[in-house]
Write a protein that binds this DNA or RNA. Structure first.
Lengths: 151, 151
DNA sequence: GTACTTGCAAACGATTTGCACCAAG
DNA sequence: CTTGGTGCAAATCGTTTGCAAGTAC
């Protein structure tokens, strides 16, 4: 965790970008919630609970900055707002999205390695990253539904 | 094409939903642009060019209706607005998205069949549909970039 | 005729932006 | 000091909604 923070700080400083307390706080919240998917206002609210009030615009600007630096990934699930997650030291992974309760579950990368090569050979497309979303029903919802005789 | 339209009309009528000229026009545009990904205002503009002015709200309401009926799929690529495509008579497919020019290329489904079964066994997650987005660089952009010595 | 649809304009809500002030380096 | 960052409020823009008028059935 501390390691992560230092890595991120170094990468920011290396680019000559200022390390303000707001940015540190946002990065800390992201690290504390690693493997969750926070929206800008989730982060804003978390900080407000710690009495660290800052402008929502600052949260957006910082997330934007980190995304452009490749340290944060913006995810669009089905909700109206975007969610963000750290990608530092993270292996690529995908998401199961429950169509009933909206829960998002992470799963490890399961894509055969040769697929990317095939894309390059057959389509001339050089794939850098890839995102898979599986839409369906999670265990809990399926059990609830089974009881109610739905689906 | 006509076959498609009839199928869609039948399915709409079967549900007791009214077949208005606006809805027919929107469905026609979707069919004519099968395998493209249109935004609500793309459809609105196409119809305006034919002098078929309708409210943009009607386009959104119709797309919403068709999506809920499972005949249209809403896709969120990286742009700010949503894109829609017909799914009637369509095999599942995925998308290559060029990070440089924004072009979206369709590719056939390439996911091994056993992956869904694994998800069910291991996570209890029943997958209904799945969407894969490959982000990278298309042939044309890579050639342009090679000339400019980028990447 | 009646319930569902439309068009319009207003409302909404997430995100962005302009600008005066402030602080990191 | 100087440049870039913040906070605030206003602007933006895709999408949704309320409502009166219209129309498919």
């Amino acid at each position: 965790m501390v390691k992560n923070e230092e890595t991120i700080y170094e990468r920011i400083e290396k680019k000559g970008i200022r390390l303000t307390p707001q940015r540190k706080d946002i990065i800390r919240i992201l690290i504390e919630n690693n493997h969750k998917h926070l929206s800008a206002s989730d982060i804003y609210d978390s900080l407000k609970e710690e009495n660290k009030i800052m402008g929502l615009a600052t949260v957006y600007r910082t997330l934007d900055l980190l995304t452009k630096m490749g340290m944060v990934m913006k995810r669009d699930f089905d909700s109206e707002l975007s969610h963000y997650e750290l990608v530092i030291d993270q292996v690529n992974h995908h998401h199961l999205i429950c169509k009933n309760c909206g829960k998002v579950i992470e799963i490890p990368d399961i894509l055969p390695k040769d697929i990317k090569n095939k894309l390059l050979e057959e389509k001339g497309f050089k794939c850098m990253t890839c995102s898979i979303k599986f839409y369906g029903y999670c265990k809990e919802c399926r059990e609830k539904m089974a009881k109610k005789n739905q689906i």
